[in-house]
Design a protein around this nucleic acid. Sequence first.
RNA 1: CGGGGAGUAGCGUAAUUGGCUAUCGCGCCUGCUUUGGGAGCAGGAGGCUGCAGGUUCAAGUCCUGUCUCCCCGACCA
Length: 569
Amino acid sequence: MYFSKMLIPTLREAPSDADIISAKLMIRAGMIRKVSSGLYEFLPLGLKALRKVETIIREEMNAAGGQEVILPLLFPKELWLETGRWNVYGKELFRLKDRKEAEFCLAPTAEEGITDLIRKNINSYKQLPLMLYQFGTKFRDEIRPRFGIMRAREFLMKDGYSFHADEADLEKYYKIMFDAYTNICKRCGFKFRAVEAASGAIGGSFSHEFMVLAETGEEEIAHCECGYGANTEKAETLPFEPLTEELLNMEEVFTPDIGSVEDVSKFLNANPEKFIKTMIYIADNQPLAVLVRGDFEVNEVKLQAYLGANELVLADESTINDITGAPCGFAGPVNLKKKIKIIADLSVVNVKNAVVGANKKDYHLKNVNAGRDYKYGESADLRKIAEGDICPRCKKGKISFSRGIEVGHAFKLGTKYSKSMNASYLDTNGKENLIVMGCYGIGVTRILAATIEQSHDENGIIWPDNIAPFEVIIVPVNFADEKTKEAAEKIYNELTAKGLDVLVDDRDERAGIKFKDADLTGIPYRITIGEKNLANGNVELKARKDGKEGIKLLKPEDAVAELLNIFKK
RNA sequence: CGGGGAGUAGCGUAAUUGGCUAUCGCGCCUGCUUUGGGAGCAGGAGGCUGCAGGUUCAAGUCCUGUCUCCCCGACCA
């Protein structure tokens, strides 16, 4: 391909609304353009790279026994009513009507669609197991699209679904897919970590997220040297050892205008570990109190899952006043004005002589003890894990945090969808059973952005060899020079004949511009043909990731041979 | 949806208390000179200053409405 023939509108400066480095570089390199918030056009160069990611994923899916299909992007409401997700999915679901006023949604994911396909076409255990996958545009009306194509309202996803006769078979296949996802991350050159995750709106019993480690990642990961890793939304926490401490008498203390744990602990000169925070939540219109130790935070994802609630929000000021009899900051479990359900996080069950709000403005209670002074209905793991916590898995190591970009998510769905949509098969005894499902998503466009986040320098993108839109760029310093042109075309023909993707910068531009654009677009190998070197029978070969000191002077045939060797052609 | 900021040419930007033909750089077109890390000179094209209303002799600038974009908090690949 010749640069002058291709639409590659590079920019010296990124638009001011581009927020992260990958978005800035993709726009500057002429790969994408923004149309509107969360909506992007893929230009030829961007699409070429995207297709390479797609190919890697497709190869791994096929190797794992998957079969590619295409489902519609537009789904009728009825299908989504069957699983209840028409109502549960909320505002994130793009909804629209056809000319007959029939309602549809744009697929944010395709469990309904695939389960419908399966229930109509699978009848027997003989047809199982089966894995179907597709590459399809997904639509999500994100609250706040950002980070370029990382969190867009329309994006390319590979979604795969597996169907099994029983849990044991799903379990077996889940491991195969786990390995396939690991391979994909490795082939994309990622520094990554597979972590346990919360399942969210997709549902199911268990899931793993594949996180690309990056400071700009939106996700927080808790991990331990023992190998345990989890999204902090999901990470389990352990109860603390009971302390042997004499129970003191409860007393009221005056804490004027001091409501926060931090302030009260300073005022009373008491450690936040001695505090019990009382958080008032409204779960599906039912108020409840959650107790958590003063130095921790309630994990609302865990709480919502524990309650099985569709909606969970912190109570507002007036509700708090109504329930506790005091303004926000003075809530406590002792003598709540209204009797509501009290759930204790594991972190508070062994706190003795605690400090709590007095449910009275400007007062706290000291030396409060569960059982004696108040009772809680139940206890559960409801807090957010903290750095330095003891690992819940090996129970020895200390938890550290990292940030990550979620590029893939694998779920054990079980029978969530087959049950609500009645997808069943007949087993060897002629007995009807629900099909057991797994589901596996990868953000294809997000992988592209994550790759750049992990691999760039001040001059531009540095593509790994197998994702790069072109593998080699030939830069003839002066394409108008006949000998240069001949040499460039010869090398181009030899490399493309062997199947390499090569771009020739035939533009009538100065060398500096060509070098800058080559660096910006991040093509991994560059052959530079200058008249002086060529007169001596040489061309230059340089890897994008190397600096100027990495330039090698080679005979054209040797440069070609080296590149063919690198790409194993 | 709540709170904060911003919309001027393809990109980045300037315009004093409201005041002349809306500034500059990059990019684009033409010509000449250059030609190994974003060249120089000369000439040129490109704007309903987001949109709609209002105030005023006069609006990019002030007011109202509206749309869009960005940032901070509740979702997910």
